[in-house]
Design a protein around this nucleic acid. Structure first.
Length: 454
RNA sequence: GUGGAUGUAGCUCAGUUGGUUAGAGCGCUGGUUUGUGGUGCCGGAAGUCGUGGGUUCGAGACCCAUCUUCCACCCCA
């Protein structure tokens, strides 16, 4: 090898062992989604750039991977334009496709495009990779999988409640202790309104969101930097300091604060209703009203969710919210949706850190038949076929290699049973079966073997 | 995108103020009287020291660039 081949920054290969673990995560999520009545769709890796641009804020546009046009892609660019070296201007001429940044926007596009075939409310789930041209770090990749579930075409807060149940169920099944954080964009809007800066909603919420990380003083500094005056900042203080999980206290404090804001009040009512409806269900994990939870995506309009693992240092491992008009941008008005996304790659990292992957061997080959040579192979093939017909994953070593090599192969691949069918066994008509874990070996007939391994 | 670290056998890492043929453990591989893996013993292969330049009589060590990974910021799953 002259130069070792490599893969692009922030992308990864997955080994068979890793795939077994990843599938454990995907299967768990899928199972819960289907249990709640969601059905699966897929959309292309590439979307038209016009579908993606402007949906994720200014930062998001920068993080989009653009796909350069095929053929002579510079043909449409004049020499003058090229000379300006203005990449933002030129990009629109040389690229009209981009890799999807998330699954929600492509879904909105899907809903609008197929509106006549869809029966609302439409509950779909989607498990596919997304791409972001971010700088990679731990738990942060340029290609990663999202596992989305959305209900579109229903305003009922029952959907929010179901989503919280699904979050709870998935993380309970995966054995990760989490805090499910809940907030509402309308409350945040009420706060911005009450301190006199309704137009600074995004700046205020982005700053508030960081309180856990950088502390109140740094948040106030950032707000000042955004042009919020000290009086307004002072008004924020009381509930910036509201910690813990006392929902009533938070709501009371909030009521006094944003009582005059119509939108704020609506947000409070929504949150109250969600908590109220939630009482009818047995939720295993903590559900916390977190008034500082903001979430960057600009399309959220109501409930917002975020899930954080209690026992691992990792950003959010799941997030979502309600968006009242995502399809509006694509020409379909007044269709509200609410959804969540599990970050499978981060969940993988958390499970690895906490050593929480199931210990029981994830299903692989159960039986290896040792290959003793041409003659014995004929009998071995029959046994192999019989085992497979019984639904037992089994393989015959493809060549009559040394016994040591074949045993090592079984060992390395965690194959629990090895069948020895050599000259002796063919004579006597019984097989030798070896348990690779205990090392025990005994004579057995094929039928006994099948019932034992099955 | 901004700032800071990192990169030596497949993996985890040693490598002294620049000085002969670059080391260990694990893994891999061969043997241990040829029908038995995972534990023992003996042997072996394996590295253009991330890549490309430069300084020097001499560079794995120093300088520059570039890439990767990691860390902080931004933002986020």
């Amino acid at each position: 090898m002259a130069h070792k081949p490599s893969i692009p920054k922030g992308t990864r290969d997955f080994s068979p062992q890793e795939m077994a673990k990843r599938n454990h995560i995907f299967d768990t999520i899928k199972e819960v989604y289907e249990l709640f009545g969601f059905s699966q769709i897929e959309t292309p890796a590439m979307e038209n750039l016009s579908t993606l641009m402007g949906k994720y804020g200014e930062e998001g546009d920068k993080l989009l991977f653009k796909v350069i046009n095929s053929g002579d892609y510079l043909k449409k660019v004049s020499a003058d334009e090229l000379a300006t070296a203005d990449s933002t201007k030129i990009i629109s001429k040389i690229s009209e496709k981009g890799l999807r940044y998330d699954l929600t926007v492509p879904f909105a596009r899907y809903v609008v495009q197929h509106r006549n075939d869809i029966q609302f409310p439409f509950k779909r789930y989607q498990i596919q990779p997304v791409w972001r041209a971010d700088r990679p770090q731990r738990g942060r990749y340029r290609e990663f999988f999202q596992c989305d579930a959305d209900v579109i075409g229903s305003n009922s807060l029952m959907n929010e409640v179901e989503i919280i149940q699904m979050l709870d169920k998935v993380f309970t099944k995966l054995d990760i202790n989490v805090v499910i954080k809940l907030n509402n964009r309308k409350i945040l809007a009420g706060i911005a309104e009450s301190i006199g800066y309704p137009e600074k909603l995004i700046d205020i919420t982005v700053a508030m969101d960081k309180i856990d990380k950088i502390g109140p003083d740094a948040v106030y500094d950032e707000l000042r930097g955004k042009g919020i005056d000290d009086d307004a900042i002072q008004m924020l203080e009381p509930f910036m300091n509201l910690q813990g999980n006392d929902t009533n206290q938070k709501m009371n404090c909030l009521g006094e604060f944003i009582g005059d804001s119509a939108i704020g009040n609506r947000g409070m009512l929504e949150v109250e209703e969600v908590f109220d409806r939630l009482k009818a269900f047995d939720i295993k994990n903590e559900v916390e009203l977190d008034l500082t939870l903001a979430r960057g995506l600009s399309y959220y309009t109501g409930a917002i969710f975020e899930v954080v693992a209690k026992d691992a240092k990792m950003g959010s491992i799941s997030g979502g919210g309600r968006y009242d008009d995502l399809t509006g941008i694509f020409g379909l008005k007044d269709v509200s949706g609410v959804g969540i996304s599990f970050g499978a790659d981060r969940i993988y990292d958390v499970l690895t850190e906490l050593d929480k992957f199931p210990k029981t061997q994830l299903k692989g080959t159960q039986v290896l038949i040792v290959n003793f040579g041409k003659e014995e192979e004929k009998k071995a093939v029959k046994i192999l076929t019989q085992l497979r017909e019984e639904g037992i994953s089994s393989e015959l070593f493809p060549e009559s290699a040394k016994m040591q090599k074949q045993m090592k192969y079984a060992n390395h691949n965690n194959i629990p049973w090895v069948i020895l069918a050599g000259e002796d066994e063919l004579q006597s008509g019984v097989l030798s079966l070896k348990n690779m874990e205990s090392g025990d070996q005994f004579k057995i007939t094929i039928d006994e073997l099948i019932s034992k391994v099955k």
